[in-house]
């Protein structure tokens, strides 16, 4: 299949004082549409940094990133905001739900930026919550939900706009085994049944098992491809 994400010669450094610390060095990577890719590697190797670049949360120093044929490194801050709203769904380690909003309202957040009517929004939110199997809990606040449930709400929020790619940064990092398995199965289903392209950073080998492709990041360099047969 055609690549949906194309990373070309991307480098990124952080500045500490007047010293540049290279985090990513000349990264090249292409991710096919419908891929489920796991990014692994030791702590500090630059996984989150790379993921943030793909999701347009941060800027490259050099190189280009194309997503769905658009070079996102050439977009302005405002264009990027709009682009993110339409194209990317985010899943974080700490769920990152807004505590003063109910599950329903959290999922509705990205839709408020669209031109959808109230009724259409309600339909979308209910559908997303149904997919993550949390319809009954939609009036609960994050504090009233378990970690696994919160992460499912976060996934519903990530998919409610039907984005082009899903990015997940250690989505099971804060969960126990059972909850982690549920989340991974959910992501697996999204990939298989809805053909969502998923890019997932993880430390957890079991999490990586669910992915079709594993890439390792080591000190800013990307290692070779490991394709794996699912299960």
């Amino acid at each position: 299949m055609a690549p949906i994400v194309e990373i070309i010669n991307v480098s990124k450094s952080y500045w500490r004082g007047n010293r540049a610390i290279p985090v990513l060095v000349d990264i090249n990577l292409s991710i096919a549409e419908g891929e489920f890719l796991a990014l692994m590697g030791p702590s500090g190797s630059g996984k989150s940094t790379l993921l943030n670049l793909i999701a347009a949360l941060d800027h490259v120093d050099s190189g280009a990133i194309q997503v769905g044929g658009i070079d996102i490194t050439a977009l302005s801050e405002n264009e990027l905001a709009e682009w993110r709203a339409v194209n990317v769904g985010f899943i974080f380690q700490f769920y990152n739900l807004i505590p003063v909003l109910t599950a329903f309202e959290n999922v509705e957040l990205p839709l408020l930026l669209t031109g959808l009517s109230r009724r259409q929004r309600n339909e979308h939110v209910e559908m997303a919550l149904r997919i993550v199997n949390l319809e009954e809990r939609m009036d609960h606040y994050p504090a009233q939900l378990s970690g696994g449930e919160q992460q499912r709400v976060a996934i519903a929020r990530a998919i409610v706009t039907d984005p082009v790619i899903l990015v997940a940064d250690e989505p099971t990092g804060d969960l126990d085994k059972v909850a982690a398995r549920e989340i991974l199965e959910l992501m697996d289903r999204l990939n298989r049944e809805s053909h969502k392209t998923i890019i997932m950073v993880t430390h957890d080998p079991r999490a990586a098992e669910k992915a079709r492709v594993i890439r390792r990041l080591e000190k800013g360099f990307l290692n070779d491809v490991h394709s794996q047969d699912p299960h």
């Binding site: 999701a55 405002n78 905001a81 985010f90 990152n96 807004i98 930026l113």
Partner: peptide
């Protein structure tokens, strides 16, 4: 700060 970053992540502008 974190929450405002989440809003921005979701496409909310400044």
């Amino acid at each position: 700060i974190g929450e405002y970053a989440i809003f921005k992540t979701l496409g909310y502008r400044g």
